[in-house]
């Protein structure tokens, strides 16, 4: 187990290098001049532009630029943006917001999705199951931003229960509504998956055996059916948390949460390569770690895949 984990961690290094290289190359190839865009329509004097280009090594060949960047990263230096602020600071300032939003949304989704999914799965084909289907399809069907804007106007402006755009309110008040919106949208998928998986397992022969052996229905459901039905669900949950940590650009923008997603979009627009690559590297890392965690969790649930 320990050897496996170590091997997986070592595998991350080439993946990370490859990912940063591709992203760096893509940012490099993007059309447009980042310096020209600094001041919009009114151009900077040529001399200033020349000096800034020099200061940021923008005139060096691509491989030299990338090499410098990677060497910096190994020293813990992620570079600076065009106003001289360290990229690492920019990311660290925004990470807590994204983290709080993702974990809150993920937690809400977990509860909502599992409750509906398990409930529907145990009563497959009955009225409650149909109701769960309608509920989940409804929230899968409505675009997220519609629910977000509607909820914001209703609960934030009309009822005044939460600050409609209030990062300043802090956790939990600033995060409940956006997290709920994200959770409702994502819970639908989780509920469908849980239900299907559970229905499949309930039809399995080993459950009939368990029933024949005289186990109580409680034991059968909680000890055998759910445990096996959860395997695909855990994969889905793990990767979806990693996905949520990547930032929810639209939700962040609507509810004024200064997270990673917004920073990424702004940096791409301004062609601030160092910021884009910095965030992307971090996100790749998060994905890799979660993938590993998911694989390790399998072993806990299903002894057959224990390595």
């Amino acid at each position: 187990m320990l050897g496996y984990t170590l091997r997986r961690i070592l595998q991350m290094i080439p993946v990370l290098l490859g990912a940063t290289f591709i992203i760096y190359a893509l940012t490099f190839l993007m059309p447009g001049d980042p310096i020209a865009a600094l001041t919009g329509e009114r151009p900077l004097p040529e001399a200033t532009v020349a000096q800034i280009r020099q200061a940021y090594h923008l005139d060096d060949p691509f491989f030299v630029q990338y090499g410098n960047y990677i060497l910096g990263v190994f020293r813990g230096d992620f570079g600076i943006d065009f106003f001289g602020r360290p990229v690492l600071d920019l990311i660290l300032e925004r990470l807590p917001v994204t983290f709080a939003l993702a974990v809150t949304a993920w937690g809400l989704k977990l509860v909502i999705g599992l409750v509906i999914g398990v409930y529907g799965g145990l009563r497959a084909g009955k009225a409650a199951d149909h109701f769960a289907l309608v509920f989940t399809v409804l929230f899968m069907g409505i675009p997220g931003f519609v629910i977000a804007l509607g909820g914001q106007t209703y609960f934030g402006v009309h009822l005044g229960w939460v600050d409609p755009a209030g990062i300043r309110a802090g956790w939990p008040m600033a995060f409940i509504l956006p997290a709920l919106v994200m959770a409702l949208e994502a819970a639908a998928g989780l509920a469908r998956l849980t239900r299907t998986s559970l229905v499949d397992v309930l039809r399995a022969e080993y459950l009939r055996t368990a029933k024949a052996k005289g186990l109580s229905p409680q034991r059968i459901i909680w000890g055998h059916a759910l445990r096996n039905a959860m395997i695909p669900v855990v994969t889905y949950l793990g990767l979806s948390l990693a996905g949520m940590l990547g930032g929810a650009v639209i939700i962040e923008a609507i509810f004024n949460l200064p997270g990673i997603g917004g920073l990424m979009v702004a940096s791409i627009n301004n062609k601030e390569g160092t910021v884009v690559v910095g965030i992307a590297t971090l996100l790749v890392l998060v994905y890799l770690v979660f993938n590993l965690l998911v694989d390790l969790t399998y072993g806990l649930i299903d002894p057959r895949v224990r390595i």
């Binding site: 402006v157 005044g160 600050d163 409609p164 755009a165 209030g166 300043r168 962040e252 004024n256």
Partner: peptide, 18 residues
């Protein structure tokens, strides 16, 4: 100076009196 990521969010906050 309240910091917003987009003017729409600021507008909504204004309608809420913030």
């Amino acid at each position: 100076g309240k910091i917003y990521t987009a003017v729409d969010a600021a507008y909504t906050d204004m309608t809420a009196g913030n």
